[in-house]
Deep mutational scan, measured.
Amino acid sequence: MDTYKLILNGKTLKGETTTEAVDAATAEKVFKHAANEHGVHGHWTYDPETKTFTVTE
């Protein structure tokens, strides 16, 4: 398992979190669910070198 990071750049919610996942696709599902639960919808990017997802509203 690897550690993946999410950076939230929402209009009303900003922050960072991490998750352990077997691959980037699994981490993305976890992060998108969490972002949706917090009402953050926007443009997603992924940097494979740093294993970091970013969502920007």
Results as ranks from 00 to 15, higher is better:
3 T>G: 04
24 A>G: 04
27 A>L: 01
6 L>A: 03
10 G>S: 08
7 I>S: 03
35 A>D: 01
9 N>I: 15
43 H>Q: 13
34 A>Q: 13
8 L>A: 04
35 A>R: 01
48 P>S: 10
34 A>M: 15
19 T>H: 06
51 K>T: 02
51 K>W: 04
25 A>V: 10
2 D>I: 13
1 M>S: 09
17 T>N: 06
25 A>F: 10
37 E>D: 09
53 F>W: 04
53 F>H: 01
6 L>K: 01
23 D>G: 03
11 K>R: 12
37 E>H: 11
34 A>E: 09
15 G>D: 08
1 M>D: 06
49 E>S: 13
25 A>G: 08
29 K>H: 10
54 T>Q: 06
5 K>D: 03
26 T>S: 13
6 L>C: 12
47 D>I: 05
31 F>R: 00
34 A>W: 15
45 T>L: 07
38 H>G: 07
19 T>Q: 05
46 Y>L: 02
40 V>D: 02
47 D>S: 07
25 A>H: 08
52 T>K: 02
6 L>V: 04
44 W>A: 01
39 G>A: 05
14 K>W: 12
18 T>Q: 09
45 T>E: 12
22 V>Q: 12
32 K>W: 09
52 T>L: 04
9 N>Y: 11
12 T>D: 11
22 V>N: 09
49 E>T: 12
13 L>E: 07
39 G>C: 06
56 T>C: 06
42 G>H: 02
35 A>K: 01
51 K>R: 12
31 F>I: 01
39 G>P: 02
21 A>V: 04
10 G>Y: 07
38 H>A: 15
11 K>H: 13
44 W>N: 00
43 H>W: 13
34 A>S: 08
24 A>C: 14
52 T>A: 04
16 E>I: 14
42 G>E: 01
8 L>W: 14
21 A>W: 01
55 V>Y: 02
32 K>S: 05
43 H>S: 12
17 T>Q: 14
55 V>Q: 01
12 T>V: 11
25 A>D: 09
8 L>S: 03
42 G>C: 02
28 E>I: 07
30 V>M: 10
51 K>G: 03
14 K>T: 10
27 A>E: 00
11 K>T: 13
29 K>V: 11
52 T>D: 00
32 K>E: 05
10 G>P: 03
34 A>V: 15
15 G>N: 09
39 G>K: 06
33 H>R: 15
22 V>R: 13
23 D>S: 06
3 T>E: 10
27 A>P: 00
38 H>S: 12
53 F>N: 00
35 A>H: 03
17 T>I: 15
57 E>D: 08
9 N>T: 06
45 T>F: 08
32 K>M: 10
1 M>Y: 13
19 T>N: 03
26 T>I: 06
7 I>P: 00
6 L>I: 04
57 E>R: 03
34 A>D: 05
25 A>S: 09
21 A>I: 02
10 G>Q: 04
6 L>Y: 02
14 K>N: 09
36 N>W: 13
28 E>Y: 15
41 H>N: 12
10 G>W: 06
29 K>N: 08
5 K>P: 02
25 A>M: 10
6 L>W: 04
44 W>E: 00
41 H>P: 04
15 G>Y: 15
51 K>N: 05
14 K>F: 11
27 A>N: 00
48 P>H: 08
9 N>E: 09
29 K>G: 08
36 N>Y: 13
31 F>T: 00
3 T>P: 04
42 G>K: 02
43 H>I: 14
23 D>W: 02
2 D>V: 11
12 T>R: 09
2 D>Q: 14
8 L>T: 05
52 T>I: 07
35 A>V: 10
15 G>R: 11
52 T>Y: 03
16 E>P: 04
49 E>R: 09
57 E>I: 08
48 P>G: 06
35 A>E: 02
4 Y>G: 03
16 E>R: 07
32 K>Q: 10
1 M>N: 08
14 K>S: 10
4 Y>T: 03
34 A>C: 15
30 V>D: 05
53 F>S: 00
55 V>L: 08
32 K>L: 10
11 K>Q: 11
24 A>D: 04
11 K>V: 14
45 T>R: 07
19 T>C: 15
12 T>N: 13
47 D>Y: 06
45 T>H: 11
43 H>R: 12
38 H>P: 02
47 D>R: 04
39 G>E: 05
56 T>F: 07
37 E>Y: 10
14 K>M: 09
16 E>S: 11
9 N>V: 13
16 E>F: 14
17 T>Y: 15
39 G>I: 08
6 L>G: 02
31 F>A: 01
3 T>C: 13
49 E>W: 10
40 V>Y: 06
12 T>A: 09
1 M>C: 12
19 T>E: 03
15 G>P: 04
1 M>W: 12
30 V>E: 08
57 E>Q: 08
9 N>P: 04
10 G>H: 05
39 G>F: 09
47 D>L: 04
53 F>Q: 00
7 I>C: 06
11 K>D: 09
36 N>I: 13
26 T>D: 09
8 L>Y: 13
12 T>P: 04
15 G>L: 15
50 T>F: 06
32 K>Y: 06
21 A>F: 04
15 G>S: 13
35 A>W: 07
24 A>R: 10
23 D>N: 09
46 Y>A: 00
33 H>G: 09
25 A>K: 10
44 W>F: 04
6 L>H: 01
18 T>R: 07
46 Y>D: 00
5 K>Q: 05
38 H>E: 08
12 T>I: 11
56 T>Y: 08
22 V>C: 11
37 E>C: 13
4 Y>H: 03
45 T>N: 09
32 K>T: 05
50 T>K: 07
18 T>C: 12
2 D>Y: 14
9 N>L: 14
31 F>P: 01
11 K>L: 15
57 E>A: 06
27 A>G: 01
17 T>E: 11
26 T>K: 05
28 E>D: 04
4 Y>D: 03
50 T>M: 06
55 V>A: 03
24 A>S: 08
18 T>K: 08
50 T>R: 06
56 T>P: 01
30 V>C: 07
43 H>L: 14
5 K>M: 06
5 K>R: 13
5 K>C: 08
42 G>L: 04
15 G>Q: 12
43 H>A: 12
49 E>Y: 10
39 G>V: 05
43 H>M: 13
1 M>Q: 09
3 T>L: 12
24 A>H: 08
26 T>V: 07
29 K>D: 07
29 K>C: 11
54 T>K: 05
41 H>L: 11
23 D>H: 03
52 T>R: 02
21 A>E: 04
50 T>E: 06
51 K>L: 11
12 T>W: 14
14 K>E: 05
1 M>A: 07
44 W>S: 00
40 V>R: 02
32 K>G: 04
45 T>M: 10
6 L>F: 08
3 T>Y: 07
21 A>P: 00
17 T>V: 15
45 T>A: 10
31 F>H: 00
30 V>R: 09
45 T>P: 00
35 A>S: 04
19 T>K: 03
5 K>L: 08
14 K>H: 11
57 E>K: 03
47 D>M: 05
37 E>R: 11
28 E>M: 12
7 I>H: 04
27 A>K: 00
31 F>W: 01
16 E>A: 09
47 D>N: 10
14 K>V: 10
8 L>D: 01
5 K>Y: 14
20 E>F: 11
52 T>P: 00
43 H>C: 13
11 K>M: 12
18 T>H: 09
26 T>F: 07
28 E>R: 07
44 W>D: 00
33 H>E: 14
53 F>T: 01
9 N>H: 09
39 G>T: 04
42 G>Y: 04
46 Y>K: 00
14 K>G: 05
40 V>I: 15
3 T>V: 13
38 H>I: 15
37 E>N: 09
27 A>D: 00
51 K>Q: 05
47 D>V: 06
43 H>F: 14
22 V>D: 07
53 F>I: 01
49 E>C: 10
1 M>L: 13
27 A>C: 00
40 V>F: 11
42 G>D: 01
24 A>M: 11
38 H>Y: 15
45 T>C: 08
39 G>M: 07
43 H>D: 14
9 N>A: 08
17 T>W: 15
7 I>G: 01
29 K>P: 02
6 L>T: 02
44 W>C: 01
